[in-house]
Amino acid sequence: MPLRLDYLVLQTIWFAAMPVGAYALLHALLQRADAFTAIDRMTKVSWSLITAGAMAGLLLFYPGSAGFVFWMAALVASLVYIVDVRPKLNEVQRGNKW
């Protein structure tokens, strides 16, 4: 049975999502707790648990399976952290460079 294109695309996305989730979790764990309150977001514990749960969801579920909804929610949680929270954390810890 030849490999189908949709299978290859889903497999590639699944493998690409792993480092994204791992990076979000690692970044959340390595930041100062007061930086989260300074940017007026949830606490470090909250984001650490969210990204840890997201990483578990990325590992446990597969995009082509019945758990696709959970996998997608995990990917979205990781991407929200990377796109929204991480830049603000980096900015507040670096300071304002005018």
Rank of each mutant, 00 (worst) to 15 (best):
L3W: 12
R4G: 12
D6R: 13
L8S: 07
L8H: 03
V9N: 08
L10K: 11
Q11R: 13
T12H: 07
T12P: 10
W14L: 04
A17T: 00
P19Q: 06
P19H: 02
V20W: 00
A22D: 06
Y23D: 06
Y23N: 03
A24R: 02
L25S: 07
H27I: 08
H27M: 10
A28T: 00
L29R: 13
L29D: 11
L30W: 09
Q31V: 09
Q31K: 13
R32Y: 01
A33T: 09
A35M: 06
F36L: 03
F36S: 00
I39K: 06
I39Q: 03
M42V: 04
T43G: 11
S46E: 15
W47Q: 04
W47Y: 13
S48K: 07
S48T: 14
I50S: 03
A52N: 05
A52D: 01
G53V: 01
A56R: 06
L58F: 02
L59Q: 06
F61D: 03
F61P: 01
F61E: 01
F61V: 05
Y62D: 12
P63A: 00
G64H: 09
G64R: 08
A66E: 12
A66Y: 13
G67C: 04
V69T: 13
F70E: 10
F70Q: 14
W71H: 01
W71F: 07
M72K: 09
M72I: 12
L75K: 04
V76S: 08
A77Q: 03
A77Y: 01
S78D: 04
V80S: 08
V80I: 14
V80L: 12
V80N: 03
Y81D: 02
Y81L: 05
I82K: 01
I82L: 11
V83S: 07
D84N: 12
D84K: 12
D84R: 15
D84L: 06
R86E: 05
R86T: 02
R86L: 12
R86H: 08
P87W: 02
L89E: 01
L89H: 02
E91Y: 11
V92P: 01
V92S: 02
G95R: 01
G95I: 05
N96H: 09
N96V: 13
W98Q: 13
